[in-house]
Design a protein around this nucleic acid. Structure first.
Length: 283
DNA sequence: TGCAGTGTTGCTTC
DNA sequence: CGAAGCAACACTGC
C-alpha cells in the first residue's frame, strides 16, 4: 500500500514523538522480524525516508530499515502482550480491523510504543551498522527520489529505457517513490497514455510529467497520504488524498474531465487506469 | 463457492 | 541481458 506520501507522512509523524527515545524492549511474532531484537537498548537519533524505505538511525551507528510493502503501517499506541497475543489498549481506532495485525512492537523508556501492523506480512526489516545497511540492495538499487531529482535527470533516466512509461514509473530502480495510485494520477494529469514507450517521450513532455508527479505527491503528503483500505497514520487517523483521486480505481466510471468511460488494463501485472480521450500516446 | 484482484517487491525461469 | 511469471500472505468482492 504505502507509496511515497504515506511513507513520508509516517516519517514526519514518528519524528515528532520518537527522536531521543530509548528502546527498552522488543516483541515480535513472525520470524522474519527477529532482527528488531537487536535494537534493544539503543536510542533513536533520527528517522528518514529513502524511496519507500523508512530508516531509523540508532545509537552506536546502527540503522533499522523498515519497508511497509502492501499492507504495513507503523502505529503509535499501547499494547498488552499476553498469552492470547497482542491486545491493543490505545489509540481507540486501534479497534479497526486494519489495525489488528500487529507483528512487532518496540517499547521505549517513555511515551507510546511503536507497533507494526501488517495484514499480509509482506513487510521487511533490516538491522545493521549504517554503512552495511546503506550498502545493501534495498537502498543501492534505488533510483533518485522523485521529489529530489531534477527534471533533466528524471527525463534522461526515463528516456534511456525503452518500455511502457507506466512500468518505468513503477520501477524503483529508475526513480524511487511513486506507486500505482500516484503513477496513474500523474499520467492522467499529464495527458499521457500509460503504454507510451518511455524512450519516445520528448524531454519537454517528461518535464511536464515530472512536475505533475511532484505536484500530486506533494498534495498527497499534505493530506497525510491515501487510506483507501489499510493505510493509517501512526496515530491511527486516515489520510485524505483518496478524495482527490481522479483516475485510479475508477474503471467504467466517467472521466471527471470529459465524461469518457475510464478503462482499466493490466500492464506488467499491475492495473493501469486511463481515459482514452484525455490520455493519448504523445511525444 | 471460487477465484481474481489488492497501495510492493524480489526471485526464478526462459 | 530483459521480460514474464510466480512467490510471499490474508482478505474482499464479484
Amino acid at each position: 500500500m504505502p507509496e511515497l506520501p504515506e511513507v513520508e507522512t509516517t516519517v514526519r509523524d514518528l519524528k515528532r514523538i520518537l527522536i531521543g527515545r530509548k528502546i527498552t524492549s522488543v516483541w515480535f511474532d513472525v520470524p522474519k522480524f527477529k532482527s528488531i531484537a537487536k535494537t534493544k537498548g539503543l536510542k533513536i537519533e533520527g528517522i528518514t525516508r529513502q524511496g519507500k524505505n523508512i530508516l531509523f538511525s540508532l545509537s552506536g551507528g546502527h540503522v533499522l530499515l523498515v519497508h511497509m510493502k502492501m499492507t504495513g503501517h507503523l502505529l503509535l499506541g499501547k499494547w498488552r502482550i499476553g498469552k492470547k497475543g497482542v491486545e491493543p489498549i490505545s489509540p481507540a481506532v486501534i479497534k479497526e480491523r486494519v489495525n489488528s495485525y500487529i507483528h512487532f512492537i518496540l517499547s521505549f523508556d517513555k511515551g507510546p510504543m511503536l507497533g507494526f501492523s501488517d495484514l499480509r506480512k509482506f513487510g521487511n526489516v533490516k538491522f545493521g551498522k549504517a554503512d552495511s545497511v546503506a550498502a545493501g540492495k534495498d537502498l543501492t538499487s534505488l533510483g533518485p527520489d522523485v521529489l529530489i531529482v531534477d527534471s533533466k535527470v528524471f527525463s534522461d533516466r526515463i528516456r534511456a529505457r525503452k518500455k511502457k512509461i507506466y512500468q518505468i514509473l513503477l520501477d524503483q530502480t529508475v526513480i524511487s517513490g511513486p506507486g500505482n495510485i500516484y503513477v496513474n494520477e500523474s499520467l492522467f494529469l499529464s495527458g499521457i497514455h500509460p503504454e507510451t514507450v518511455s524512450s519516445q517521450i520528448s524531454p519537454a513532455l517528461l518535464k511536464r510529467l515530472h512536475s505533475k508527479l511532484a505536484e500530486i505527491l506533494t498534495v498527497g503528503v499534505n493530506l497525510g497520504g491515501t487510506s483507501l483500505d489499510d493505510y493509517r497514520r501512526p496515530n491511527g487517523e486516515r489520510g485524505f488524498f483518496g478524495n482527490k483521486i481522479q483516475i485510479y480505481g475508477r474503471e467504467k466510471l466517467p472521466c471527471m474531465v470529459c465524461g469518457t468511460i475510464i478503462m482499466r488494463k493490466k500492464i506488467g501485472a499491475r492495473s493501469a487506469f486511463f481515459c482514452l480521450k484525455c490520455q493519448k500516446p504523445k511525444r
